[in-house]
Simulated scan of single mutants.
Amino acid sequence: MSKNTNDIQLKIANRKPVQVSFEELIEHLPQPPKGWIAEKFQGETIFLGNYSISQVSQIYTQQSKQITIRIFDWAFNSALYTPFLMTTDFSQESTEGYNKSIKIDNISGKEYTYSSKRSLNLLVYNKFFVQIEAIKIEKTELREWWQLVDYKSLIKLNNN
């Protein structure tokens, strides 16, 4: 396991996770920028024994361009975040595109580009998994959508 993963496990070992309901997460989906249309959002909270996961998503369109933003509350469930963090040490490049490790605003993640599809996946506070999937979007536009996600307010959700 990477040093990053071990550090995270030590930080959260004594912390009791606060589950955020999908109703609260919906408020953290970004408003569509000018010229974009937001479809109806979707959300759910799933309970399995002592574990629960909340997730929300929304699709945004502008002509042939499409963005899907998903926010998951993994509630510090190590079975979910550890495999993702392990992949942040992996990169691949081919004639078809790439899959590389990234860090934005000191947040670990992955960026994928294949053909006309792009994806940005970041793990905020080792609890909230934010996924931005795009069709017919440039790399710079994908990063601009990340800036629309108020990830700092997600961090505050766990501190309430």
Score class of each variant (00 low, 15 high):
residue 21 S to E: 07
residue 53 I to F: 13
residue 63 Q to L: 11
residue 24 E to P: 01
residue 50 N to T: 08
residue 45 T to Q: 06
residue 58 Q to E: 14
residue 62 Q to L: 12
residue 69 I to W: 09
residue 63 Q to C: 03
residue 38 A to V: 05
residue 54 S to R: 09
residue 68 T to P: 07
residue 62 Q to F: 01
residue 39 E to I: 00
residue 24 E to F: 05
residue 32 P to V: 09
residue 53 I to Q: 07
residue 22 F to S: 13
residue 49 G to T: 04
residue 50 N to K: 12
residue 51 Y to C: 00
residue 68 T to H: 09
residue 41 F to K: 13
residue 24 E to A: 13
residue 55 Q to F: 11
residue 50 N to Y: 01
residue 48 L to R: 14
residue 32 P to C: 10
residue 46 I to E: 11
residue 48 L to P: 00
residue 44 E to M: 05
residue 33 P to D: 02
residue 62 Q to G: 01
residue 51 Y to S: 11
residue 60 Y to K: 05
residue 58 Q to P: 03
residue 49 G to E: 05
residue 69 I to D: 07
residue 58 Q to A: 08
residue 22 F to V: 08
residue 49 G to F: 01
residue 61 T to S: 14
residue 36 W to L: 04
residue 63 Q to F: 13
residue 40 K to E: 15
residue 58 Q to N: 09
residue 30 P to V: 08
residue 23 E to T: 10
residue 66 Q to R: 14
residue 41 F to L: 02
residue 45 T to V: 02
residue 41 F to I: 00
residue 24 E to K: 12
residue 49 G to P: 02
residue 49 G to I: 03
residue 29 L to V: 07
residue 46 I to D: 05
residue 22 F to E: 13
residue 23 E to S: 09
residue 42 Q to Y: 04
residue 42 Q to L: 00
residue 29 L to R: 02
residue 35 G to K: 01
residue 70 R to W: 06
residue 22 F to W: 10
residue 48 L to A: 13
residue 36 W to I: 02
residue 41 F to D: 13
residue 24 E to W: 01
residue 58 Q to W: 05
